[in-house]
Amino acid sequence: MRLLLRETALAFRRAPLPSALSVVTIAFSLFVIGLYGLVTVNIHDAIGSVARRVEVVAYLQRGTPVETVETAMADVQAFPEVESVRHVSSAQALARAQRELPEFQSIFQDLEANPLPASLEVRLKPRYRDAASAAAVADRLRSFSFVDDVRFGGDWVAKLDRLRTIAGAVGAVIGAAFALVGIMIIGTTIRMAVLHRREEITIMRLVGATDGFIRRPFLLEGLIKGLLGGALALGLCYGAWALVNTYLLRAAFFTGAEAAAGIAAGGLLGLGGSLFSIGRHLRSV
């Protein structure tokens, strides 16, 4: 172990510039992937915030007894898709309309009776905020005898579904392309480090080093370069995010777990790239 650490440290000390360049190359590859990740996180957040508005509203017949409504609310709350259900009385509906539609104030004042029905506003759990689930819940609500009508904005929920599908597909394709390019750049960087030391590898073999012995310092070196590159990429992403957040628009940054996963991914890429490069080199000599 001591020898392994010494050999790895020696590799960095003997070639500080190539090592630093490797780390910077890895960092910039991961930075591009990280920027893409930030865009994805924010698009996901934006779609999520729109999806939170997916709501199924059941309008109730006038004179429905409160006990009946309360029993029905308990039933609806038990639907697997339902996150919450709220009863809005006709008086509350009118108050809300007066508050939200001030331009119709005169009409509201001329009313002799409240024309707005009471309703049940049903919010869906995040994973059920799509057109099919909303329609299924709406159908079940219609089956209650005291429900007059059910609305859930089927058209815009369907559009939201489409937007989500397109964002997901485009995200997967671009993400895969970025990741592939990143992996190739990192692989090439590490391959160059291996080639830089091919004479040393040849000598190690001639004096009887096993392939495992030769491989270990390269793997540790790749892991360390990957982790350093990942940390540097995270710093660059933070800088880019801070600029956007300050001068352009409010945006979300990675959570702690996502940031840690990014650095770990850098380490894994470094390790994987080294494993591949040194393995290929050892097979070829």
Binding site: L3, L10, R14, E199, E200, T202, I203, M204, R205, L206, V207, G208, A209, T210, F213
Partner: peptide, 30 residues
Amino acid sequence: LRRRLGIVFQDFRLLQERTAEENVAFALEV
């Protein structure tokens, strides 16, 4: 097998970044 052989070449094949004793020690350490 190679640990039981000693091999010497025309072009020496020494590691340039290591001292004479480090070059020799290297063969033992592996």
